[in-house]
Nucleic acid binder design. Sequence first.
DNA 1: TTATAAATGTTATATTATTACATACTGTTA
DNA 2: TAACAGTATGTAATAATATAACATTTATAA
Lengths: 132, 132
Amino acid sequence: MQKQQNLSKNQQIIFDIIHNSSEPLKAYSILFNVQKKGIKAPLQVYRALDKLVELGKIHKIESRNAFIACQNSSCQISKATAFSICESCEQVSEISNTKLSKYLSNFTDEAGMKYNKYNLEFFGLCKKCKSK
Amino acid sequence: MQKQQNLSKNQQIIFDIIHNSSEPLKAYSILFNVQKKGIKAPLQVYRALDKLVELGKIHKIESRNAFIACQNSSCQISKATAFSICESCEQVSEISNTKLSKYLSNFTDEAGMKYNKYNLEFFGLCKKCKSK
DNA sequence: TTATAAATGTTATATTATTACATACTGTTA
DNA sequence: TAACAGTATGTAATAATATAACATTTATAA
């Protein structure tokens, strides 16, 4: 329940739920979970999610429309993200690999373009599911 | 309008529209475009899209919920995809860079896991937008 | 030719996300 | 402290994206 400075009430409530979850959470499942705390409308959830993403406290898993807490203490702003996703159990982990992030941050395309931001999603079977 | 063998009627109609588009297309914009051709329901579009993705003829740009034709002739099955996305004009290009794809296909995480599939989206400003 | 898989058609509905507008809170600075 | 600006909240309505369920047809191949 680690208290985060400078989050607003709704932002804190929603961050806590995501942070305490062992799996990525979808917006409407978050909504369902926070209705007892007085957050009643989708927009209240989406606004907090937007802000938390902007702050780098959470990331959106684009292929799943779901959100996880940032697992990478150094990632203040989420402009360089990488995840592994198990296609069987849907477990998601954030990858923090210095070589990978350096490689991608320095990547230059055929036209000489560099990019200030990327998102990478790996898919496969996690250890548990592979051994089944 | 290049005729593709072994696509069904709806698949062919929808592939042609995506293939001839200069920008990624969203499912409901495709639907709107094909209503004159007798495709009336979202599901008809989504089914064709699913199949085309499975065949590697098109790719889904996850962060945009939109679809583009595969620009990489060698990419039969879309299990290793990379795109550059302009955050200003929303132009999207598929990146086919052998070094990058080798690097990512061989990537091994801290736990020794390899992945059989990935999707990478780079964000930035395209040449045109940068020079504005 | 018959049976199996793939594709289609149709209606309804589920899920994800935003617009628009009114109000309240928080932190500055005059 | 008053006035202001910026951020956050509340609420209702609706837009945009995607799937379930079921009936039927077409293509393929044994």
